[in-house]
Every structure is written in structure tokens, then in C-alpha cells.
Design a protein around this nucleic acid. Structure first.
Length: 510
RNA sequence: GGUGCCUUCAUCUAACGGUUAGGAUACAAGAUUCUCAAUCUUGGCAUACGGGUUCGAUUCCCGUAGGCACUACCA
């Protein structure tokens, strides 16, 4: 590590969303990496709410975010709804704290008061080509640097709104030491005098609140999305201005999640356009009523989502892909994070889901499947469901698909697939199936293992084709030429049902 | 436009100066089977381009091109 003073500090990391809507899947990955890093280092994972923009507050968003992490199995140690000794953890409840630090900067001459209205700023931007509020322009604007102190005081006393801006000295190379990208140097001249505080709502902006909170909460590592890299030099300068350089956190800027196709980062709209969710849980916008789909409701397993996400921008350095959260905690390494953005290819997520279904026990899958069966009006014993799951589990990508694969095990087919009929229910099929039924009825032992060789013998003795006979029977039992081994099916539904279905089909289909 | 970051198969990625450039997904073919899947085997597919440095560059440096992000009294 480059910064000696932070080397032996307890690891404290945070995930700090603003409650402006549902939790984006990219945010989930950022949180996941923070979580893995915290656990690996016996650190603390903090949940902070950054609600300094009162205009963008969306009711229900905070609870949605919490619920998402509960579903995903990512646990926090400290923060909003978890408690801790560094609270409050909701920024809107920390007004007084920020005010105090803004005043410190003001008194030290490292920040100043500005009265320019949004409209005036807009005008300036329209007028001057590359307008930026900085050393080159600030003296031409209306602020405490360009105006006499009495006038400033008079304006404030008269109730004029103002903002506090950070005074950036130009011409300095600012170093950001990024754990993933290495040293990034930016000249302070290209930075603008960022607004730190708004008098209107007495709240800070992100930058000030973020630095003050990270410092006060003793955050050791800031692991966040790449979109923050351009403002990282500003943050470094803020730590300097406060004299907190010694305890400044380490930075790691993660690559972004990109659209599966085309250009740009993954956005809310892409999901439902391309047929996959971009949110962990379904979300209904309280204002518009618009519904965005979620992974939970779309039948994805949280473990699969986590596993897939973990590998988007990180890899353990070997060929292992299927990993539990515990294994990821062991293997995670910020230095093995990639720098380039990762396309969000949900095809692979489907594969992960398939793998997780296969790797889970039949019992576990049966428990997940039971409610689906119930919704179709099927009441079965746990043992029967487990057995049904074991027959078809490895052929589905989603638990919900089990219904299509097993419905015929629980109820006789109501219709018959045209293609299957055309291929297998022709010529001699009705007659040979009837003969087969008679033969099966006469057999003393219906158990698949016993019955199968007997049936094979019978088919051979008759000189029939195995494929023709077996598939004709399959169609009568299943309704289509699909499904597991036929004697597994007959075993499951029993002798009586087998014969009833076959004979009914013979009469209705001829 | 300005600034920063980035660039290996279609996609996620491995190879931290020396490999026939590896794995996975997807795709294709074959095997298996009473069917459909699953599974197994096989196959095609990449170092953006141009210069250096070096005995040797995917790897280091420079340039070009392209991509992405930021550029709010949003986070």
C-alpha cells in the first residue's frame, strides 16, 4: 500500500446509496465488492443513506434497498437500521455536523460564499464557451471574493440564498492513488469551485457530506464506481483542506457495467427493452406507477445473481466460476479487478442460474417449487415433489420452468402436441399401444426396473420398433415427445393412471 | 468541445517480457438415448492500428483510432 499511515487501520467500508429509486444492479455489484472486502479483512460494512438532495427523495426507496440486500444475502454491520457508534447514518439527520465543517473551511479561507443564481450561472455558461466557476472566472462572479464584506453580510441578512463554494488553487498536480488503476494525476486548474453547501435547504452537496462522513465514520477504503474517478481529485483536495490527509481512505474505482449491446452504461431502460431486469427486486414507481421488473420476481436465485455479478469486473485468478459467497470472501482481491467496463451479458446469468439449480439438493428445489405447484392447484406430498424434481431438475434454467416439465406427472395431459402426434401417433401406433397396455396389465410387477426388460422382450417378440412403441406410449402419457425416461414416468404415475391415460388417448385420438 | 479512464475470441476473462495466447458463456458438429433436454467430446472465433525499447513483446514507452465516464445549488 502506498499510504503507510492507513496500512494497519481497521477496515471500514461503506455502501452509500441515495434513496432516489430502486437499487441499480451496478450498485449491487459495488456493494458486493465492499462486502467481500470487509469480510475478508474482518472489517465493518456500513450502510449510509445519502439523501442530501431533498428534491430527489423517493418514498420507499430506502426500504427497497434494504430488502434487496436481505434477499441477496449481503449483510451490513452498521448504519441505517443496523445501528452503530458513528451515527446518525442518514445524511439528512447530520445537518449540524456539516454546517460546522463548512464554517471551518469558510473561516480558513478555503471556501467562499457565492450568490449567483442558477439562472445567472446558466447565462454565463451560454455566453462563455467553456465556462467554469474557477480561478479564471470567480472574481467576475457575485461572491465573497469579489464583493466587500459588508455587502456580503447585507445580502445574507436580507435573506438572499447563497451557496458555499470550495476555493481551488489552480496549477497544482493532484495525485489520486487508486488501488485498481494506480496513480492518477490531475491538474487542479481543470477542477471547478464545487458547491459544497446550499443555504436554501441547509444541506451540503455530495462532495462535502461524503468527505466529512467518511472521515467521521473512519472509513478506510472507498470502493465505488468509476463515475467518481473525475471527482476523486476534488475529494483529495478536501481531505487536505481539512487537514485529514493522514487518515484519508484508500480509493478504488470499479469499472462500469455496460449495456449488453450497443454503447453506454447499463441503464434502467435497457432491462425491459432486452428482456432482463436491471433491479434486484420488482419496483413500482410511486409517482408514475410504472413497474420495473426484478430478478427475484423473474425467478432468479440470489446466489446466481451474486455469482454472476462478482465475475463482472473481477476474477479469482484461476478458472473457477461457481463460487459461494464464503469462497468469494476468501478469494476476493481488489488488485484482480479489471479496469475496463464489462458488458452485462445476461445469457451467462441464465447459465449460472441453471448451475445453481443443478447444484442444489432436490429437497431445496422442491421447497422452492412447492408454491408454484400450489398456484396451479396441485397438492402433493413433499416426497412426491422431491421425486418429480429429481427427474427433471437438470433440464431447467429456472425453478418456474419445472411446471412445464412436470405438470404431466401430476395431471393427465389435456391436449396433445401436433408435431409429436404427427411423428409418433400414426399407422400402427394406436393398435400397438393397445396391445402394449394389455401386456402391461397382465404383468405382475409394474416396477420400472422390472417392467422395462419385460416390455423390451415383448416388443422384440412382436417384431415392433422400440422407438415407435415407446414414443407412442410417451405421447399418450405426456401429451408430447418430451420428458425423462418413460419408465421413470410410469413409476411415478402408477399402473392404474398409466393404463387409464393410454387407453383414453387411444379412444380420443383415433 | 474540455479533462480523465480504458482497449485479448461475439461476451466475461487468464497469461503480471519467453505459452501451440488458456478457461467459461453463446454458437456449430458429433456421441448417447424411446423423445426432449441435460451430459460428454470436438470445432471455429481474439492480442484495435502504427511506431519504438528488447535476443524476444498481449505484457513496457510514444502516437493514432475507438469506447466509456465526468463536465449541476444530482448523487
Amino acid at each position: 500500500m502506498a499510504n503507510n499511515s492507513t496500512e494497519n487501520r481497521p477496515v471500514r467500508v461503506r455502501f452509500a446509496p441515495s434513496p432516489t429509486g430502486p437499487l441499480h444492479i451496478g450498485g449491487v455489484r459495488t456493494a458486493l465488492y465492499n462486502y467481500l472486502f470487509a469480510r475478508q479483512n474482518n472489517g465493518t460494512f456500513i450502510f449510509r443513506i445519502e439523501d442530501t438532495d431533498s428534491n430527489r427523495f423517493v418514498p420507499g426507496a430506502e426500504e427497497y434497498i434494504l430488502e434487496s440486500f436481505r434477499w441477496l444475502g449481503i449483510e451490513f454491520d452498521e448504519g441505517v437500521s443496523f445501528g452503530g457508534n458513528y451515527g446518525p447514518y442518514r445524511q439528512s439527520e447530520r445537518r449540524d455536523i456539516y454546517k460546522k465543517y463548512v464554517d471551518i473551511l469558510l473561516e480558513a479561507g478555503k471556501a467562499y460564499i457565492a450568490f449567483d443564481t442558477p439562472a445567472e450561472l446558466e447565462a454565463a455558461r451560454a455566453e462563455i464557451p467553456n465556462f467554469q466557476y474557477d480561478a479564471s472566472t470567480r472574481l467576475k462572479m457575485r461572491n465573497s471574493l469579489s464583493m466587500p464584506a459588508e455587502e456580503v453580510k447585507a445580502l445574507i441578512d436580507a435573506g438572499n440564498q447563497y451557496v458555499v463554494r470550495f476555493l481551488i488553487e489552480p496549477g497544482r498536480d493532484v495525485l489520486v492513488n487508486d488501488l485498481i488503476r494506480g496513480k492518477v494525476v490531475v491538474n487542479s486548474s481543470i477542477l471547478d469551485d464545487k458547491v459544497l453547501f446550499k443555504s436554501a435547504d441547509q444541506l451540503p452537496t455530495y462532495h462535502l457530506a461524503n468527505i466529512v462522513d467518511d472521515h467521521l465514520m473512519e472509513v478506510s477504503h472507498v470502493i465505488r464506481g468509476e463515475e467518481w474517478l473525475p471527482s476523486a481529485p476534488l475529494h483529495v483536495l478536501l481531505y487536505e483542506a481539512f487537514g485529514w490527509t493522514d487518515t484519508m481512505p484508500e480509493f478504488a474505482h470499479l469499472p462500469l457495467l455496460l449495456k449488453p449491446e450497443g454503447n453506454g452504461k447499463l441503464s434502467k431502460r435497457d432491462g425491459d427493452r432486452l428482456g432482463f431486469p436491471v433491479f434486484p427486486l420488482e419496483w413500482k414507481d410511486p409517482k408514475s406507477g410504472e413497474i420495473s421488473s426484478g430478478y427475484r420476481e423473474k425467478d432468479y436465485l440470489p446466489e446466481a445473481v451474486i455469482n454472476f455479478l462478482a465475475l463482472l469486473g473481477w476474477n479469482p485468478g484461476n478458472d473457477q466460476e461457481i463460487m459461494s459467497l464464503e469462497e468469494m470472501v476468501q478469494l476476493f482481491n481488489l488488485e484482480k479487478c479489471s479496469k475496463a467496463g464489462a458488458r452485462f451479458n445476461y445469457q451467462k446469468l441464465v447459465w449460472f442460474n441453471h448451475e445453481y439449480i443443478i447444484n442444489k439438493s432436490d429437497e431445496e428445489i422442491a421447497n422452492l417449487f412447492a408454491p408454484v405447484l400450489e398456484s396451479h392447484g396441485v397438492k402433493e406430498s413433499h416426497e412426491r415433489i422431491v421425486k418429480a424434481v429429481s427427474l427433471v431438475k437438470n433440464r431447467v434454467n429456472f425453478v418456474g420452468e419445472l411446471w412445464n416439465q412436470t405438470s404431466y406427472l401430476f395431471q393427465a395431459p389435456e391436449s396433445f402436441d401436433e408435431k409429436s402426434l404427427k411423428k409418433w401417433w400414426k399407422d400402427e401406433a394406436p393398435r400397438t399401444t393397445a396391445e402394449l397396455c394389455d401386456f402391461i396389465e397382465s404383468e405382475p410387477d409394474f416396477t420400472g426396473a422390472v417392467l422395462e426388460p419385460r416390455v423390451m422382450e415383448w416388443i422384440a417378440s412382436k417384431g415392433y420398433g422400440i422407438g415407435k412403441v415407446m414414443n407412442a406410449l410417451r405421447v399418450t402419457l405426456v401429451g408430447a415427445a418430451v420428458g425423462p425416461h418413460i419408465f421413470e414416468i410410469t413409476d411415478f404415475i402408477g399402473k392404474e393412471e398409466t393404463l387409464a391415460r393410454a387407453r383414453k388417448a387411444i379412444s380420443t385420438l383415433s
